[in-house]
Amino acid sequence: MADDVLFDHALRLGDDALVMGQRLSEWCGHAPMLEVDLALANIALDLLGQATHFLNLAGEIEGKGRDADALAFHRDVLDFRNCLLVEQPNGDFAQTIARQFLFSNWQELLMREIAAAPEPRLAAIGAKAVKEIAYHAKFASEWVVRLGDGTAESRTRMIAGLEWMWRFVDELFDPMDGAPSRRGEWDARINRTLTEAGLELPKPRRGAMGGRAGHHSEHLGHLLTEMQFLQRAYPGATW
């Protein structure tokens, strides 16, 4: 891979994990039960770790002295390369689970390929991450089943959560990642869990795209404002 392609690739992987981790960390202390609070924090921690590795690698490839922190805290919206799905607001617990379910199942398939890819630095990060993500996908899928099957209210909310997130699915399979090949396996996984949950696949719709080119939803700017506050307010300070 040419360096600029590799840089962009590592950036996409890092930004997905960073933004998803930041979103999940918003739940800390506020989840529906203590056990779920701990599980969401675990997932967020895994993702923050992945983000740190991928962004450090991106900085190394770029060779301009930027590390993960420089990339995370000193870029604006147009330079973020995450998919739109991960920046979507938490909403209620069902919306959070819908987002995690769609994302982690995709990220697991992607990371398996990366773990087996010829680029050794990416592969090393991917090999560790893939085990973590398998757990995330399992956690989210189990909750989709619980909520879909649980009560009338949880079912309604689960359907609404999936509805909210569904328009961001197509972007995950953008050919830029060489990713369309993953769609079949992903569809099969999603279908299997939804069937177990007694839920239907949301109707197809026109996908929202643009995250990989820096054209995000309105939500990302607010997320970055909060995340980057100290670095922006006290330039050059060490923490």
Partner: peptide, 14 residues
């Protein structure tokens, strides 16, 4: 947590 000053501090705090 969401405003921690860098990735390391964020992970430690979380």
């Amino acid at each position: 947590i969401t405003r921690a000053p860098n990735l390391r501090r964020k992970a430690i705090l979380l």
